[in-house]
Design a protein around this nucleic acid. Structure first.
Lengths: 146, 146
DNA sequence: ACCATTTATTTCATCAGATGAAACATTTAT
DNA sequence: ATAAATGTTTCATCTGATGAAATAAATGGT
């Protein structure tokens, strides 16, 4: 088995483990993973379109996510003054509270699940940041949704 | 944003990108991701139970995956001589051919998507191997399915 | 040997969430 | 002013995961 395949399996295992644990750990009921990911990304007001693109989902999928989060009182839709077709999504106070809660929880989970030291996390982070740049610069994200 | 969260987002992006590209690239029709993952794991005959556990899915889910792969002539069910309740799953010749095809394709995709050098892949691999051991040893996999 | 319990898998009804096409509203370009 | 493009929504549809109950074989105690 090539090192790449081996790596992919490890990454997959880590990804699934984190996802399942975070999804389940969230308060009372389980929240769809994409809902959580969107909440985390919403550190500043954003258009639905850009969020959908970043998250690699269709606009119609993002509408559903936003509906659920809005329903739960975690985010709010406001018209973008620049373009009245578009919405600016924005976390409410309740949303912000959950956001930081999830972030703290996730960071802690990441440490315990990986068992990595702070230094190792730093090194890994640098490497993965490079990967992320590569994915975006090479347009792999666009390609997926077209 | 903490380095852990940042890392998780990068990992998620890489994971999704790879998954989507591999799923789509596979020959004629798109194959469910878990079907591909199972085929890749099947380098030697395995019981359905152990596969389900490794893949973090329910036994009933694995039955469906095995059904699809068997239907496609990629794997074969044989009774385990040690325990006649259990099946040993085994790739057919056709399955083995697709297996190596997918592996080569995935490895190539991993290189182009990440843009990492062989040395970097090696370093990342070592780190992730440690992570994988930690996840298994600490029983995070069990916990998910209980 | 016998019965209860545990283990390996399957069946099936159900569900959640993603998809894609068509609709709608607004903006931009000609 | 009109046509084309853009941002979002609606809705019908589909795929695959879930969980509970069924089946079948192994194991363990008596």
């Amino acid at each position: 088995m090539s090192p790449e395949i081996d790596l992919m399996i490890s990454i997959h295992l880590l990804h699934e483990t984190l996802e399942a644990r975070i999804e389940a750990a969230d308060l009372d009921q389980t929240v769809p993973k994409n809902d959580i990911l969107m909440l985390i990304r919403l550190t500043e007001p954003m258009r639905m379109g850009s969020l959908a693109e970043e998250m690699l989902v269709l606009p119609s999928t993002l509408t559903a996510i936003a509906d659920r989060l809005e329903e739960a009182g975690l985010i709010r839709r406001r018209r973008d003054p620049e373009d009245r077709r578009a919405w600016l999504l924005d976390v409410t106070d309740k949303g912000r509270a959950l956001q930081s809660h999830i972030m703290a929880l996730s960071a802690e989970m990441f440490r315990s699940v990986t068992g990595l030291s702070a230094a190792e996390i730093g090194a890994l982070g640098q490497m993965m940041h490079k990967v992320r740049r590569n994915i975006i610069e090479c347009g792999y994200t666009q390609e997926l949704m077209k």
